[in-house]
Amino acid sequence: MEVRTIKVFTTVDNINLHTQVVDMSMTYGQQFGPTYLDGADVTKIKPHNSHEGKTFYVLPNDDTLRVEAFEYYHTTDPSFLGRYMSALNHTKKWKYPQVNGLTSIKWADNNCYLATALLTLQQIELKFNPPALQDAYYRARAGEAANFCALILAYCNKTVGELGDVRETMSYLFQHANLDSCKRVLNVVCKTCGQQQTTLKGVEAVMYMGTLSYEQFKKGVQIPCTCGKQATKYLVQQESPFVMMSAPPAQYELKHGTFTCASEYTGNYQCGHYKHITSKETLYCIDGALLTKSSEYKGPITDVFYKENSYTTTIK
């Protein structure tokens, strides 16, 4: 009895394709271990004539594949690729409408935090270190965002349907971005203890939790000093293409032309909904596939993004 075979390709990165001759009487799992086709788990399936010449994702289970996976995804987590594939199996079914010149995501599976993050990423200057993220990001900007969303979920250790947080998501993504040249110098002034300067680099240099107003941050924000008295913390120097200011959701007025974009969060910790506000020729609110415009805006804002380049204080 002759062994019926077909020729397929296996890959971990969709760049390096490895030619395989597979036995049609055995499952993919018996031949390769966990195997995925377009995100779908085909591990328990036997090869079919229609699979001839198709590319299958496999887990990096030998040295060659491990090197290829690390170079593309910059992670050695053995569960990463499987999590990416199972997320992709959902995100490829989502709709990605162009809204006001940006790629958004039609609401499904509690994905409003991903839509808000995706919209924000198209408006701030950011370059990702893992080629996987950078490639998928370019495709997302062009309207094909399924891979990018699935990668975000995998890097953030999230599953489809789980509630997510924009600030946490951005923080994970910033860790995989090139923020080497970003720098922030802060000064804390206390009447009792004097003053202390701190220099922050990388992710810490672009994120701040405690106030939404970048102007206020430049002037000074009140913080408790270690001595128990009130101290003032203010920005001395900022070198970065953008800054992200966050605070627990509270009524906040966004003035046209003073910011790049913002995240609105309605609801409580267990259950809520994100919308995205962007400042173009007027203010726009993007909620999944829905767009509304207004000249002014007041609502429960939790993150505001500002364009920056270089700032030095005039406070002496």
Results as ranks from 00 to 15, higher is better:
V243Y: 02
N129I: 08
E68D: 06
G53L: 13
W94D: 06
K92W: 04
C156P: 04
K46Y: 12
S50R: 12
T159P: 06
N14A: 14
R139M: 14
G29L: 08
Y306P: 00
Q195E: 15
A132L: 03
V166R: 01
A205C: 01
Y284D: 09
Q237G: 06
V67G: 13
K298Y: 15
K293F: 10
F305E: 00
Q20I: 10
P97C: 15
K229S: 15
T27F: 14
I223A: 13
Y214V: 10
V236M: 11
M24Y: 10
T292Y: 10
F80V: 04
L37R: 14
P248V: 07
S310V: 15
Y137Q: 07
S181L: 09
Y311F: 12
K191A: 15
T75R: 08
V21P: 11
Y36C: 05
E125N: 12
D62P: 06
I277C: 00
G101F: 02
P47C: 06
K46A: 14
W107P: 05
Y137M: 12
Q98L: 13
D13T: 09
V8R: 04
V243K: 00
E264H: 05
I315L: 15
T226I: 12
Y73E: 03
F128V: 02
N187M: 15
E162D: 13
S295K: 15
S79D: 15
C285Y: 05
G194S: 02
T266M: 12
K298V: 15
T282S: 13
Y297R: 01
H256S: 11
D63Q: 10
Q270S: 15
G210M: 00
Q230Y: 15
T211C: 11
E264Q: 07
K93N: 14
A150P: 02
L81S: 05
T292F: 13
Q196C: 11
T35L: 09
H18R: 09
E296W: 12
L65A: 10
Y274A: 06
Y155L: 05
M207R: 07
N14L: 07
L65I: 06
V21M: 15
Y208R: 02
N14G: 15
L121K: 04
T64Y: 11
A142K: 15
T76E: 09
A140F: 09
L88T: 04
A146E: 08
Q122A: 02
D135Q: 10
S310T: 13
V203Y: 15
R139E: 13
Q20N: 11
E144G: 07
V221W: 06
A40N: 15
E204V: 06
